[in-house]
């Protein structure tokens, strides 16, 4: 039974495993501070609901279709990243690891494209950032999540390069130093995985509180 399912227990040594645990716990501490940030942006949005200052409200600005596509893209991206961690854990080859990381990246970019299209549409309908308190709170909340996804995508690209350069499989690597590098790449991919799945959890809150609550009659 491994503590962190992504970590390769079958082949990794005890030392690598022991080193990974505080790293992952530390990353959880960061994620929880991020959770507090998002929670307060949600609270701000909730207090600003209905403060439209005569401007367009959610029913004029939001669209159900794109929100559904964004939700699906992010969820599929989460699954693709899960597949990447599985492929890494069971060492099914570098090609498959890169394939699933690439799939997660692509779906993240699909999400971002639809979100940017949403924002542009809202601006065109007169729903800019400064139009009303509700819209400022909306862009603060959804924009912060979008920025997180953007940096997540960038981070996936960086990890794909690291996998290409250093590899993420212990059995490929003969020397102690090469094994150490592979271990480090593995724990980095695990931490990015926590980040990526966490962003999907924040999105559950956004599509529920912002989009669906705003669009329901």
């Amino acid at each position: 039974m491994s503590r962190h399912p992504g970590l390769n227990l079958a082949h990794a040594d005890e030392k690598a495993h022991a080193e990974a645990e505080p790293l992952l716990f530390g990353f959880w501490v960061f994620l929880m501070s991020d959770l507090v940030l998002f929670a307060l942006l949600f609270a701000t949005y909730a207090t600003m609901m209905g403060v439209t200052a005569g401007g367009p409200g959610p029913k004029q600005l939001f669209e159900l279709g794109p929100a559904a596509i964004e939700t699906a893209a992010l969820l599929c991206s989460s699954l693709a990243y899960g597949m990447a961690t599985l492929v890494m854990k069971y060492e099914r080859g570098r090609v498959w690891l890169l394939f699933w990381l690439g799939a997660a990246l692509l779906l993240g970019l699909v999400f971002l494209c639809f979100e940017i299209d949403d924002f542009v549409g809202m601006f065109a309908k007169g729903g800019g950032i400064g139009r009303s308190g509700q819209l400022s709170a909306f862009f603060a909340l959804v924009g912060t999540h979008g920025l997180h996804v953007t940096f997540g995508c960038l981070w996936i690209v960086v990890m794909m390069i690291q996998v290409l350069v250093f590899g993420a499989e212990r059995r490929d690597n003969k020397t102690e130093r090469e094994r150490l590098l592979a271990d480090r790449v593995q724990t980095r991919i695990l931490r990015l995985g926590l980040f990526w799945h966490f962003l999907d959890i924040v999105w559950i809150g956004i599509f529920s509180v912002v989009y669906l609550q705003g669009l329901t009659a």
Partner: peptide, 25 residues
């Protein structure tokens, strides 16, 4: 995710949708 999206798309009553959102979420 699909259940609350469907409820909004089918124009269910607001109170029903809100409870569904809280539960499913």
């Amino acid at each position: 995710s699909a259940v609350p999206f469907a409820a909004v798309a089918l124009h269910r009553p607001r109170a029903q949708v809100l409870w569904l959102l809280i539960g499913c979420g």
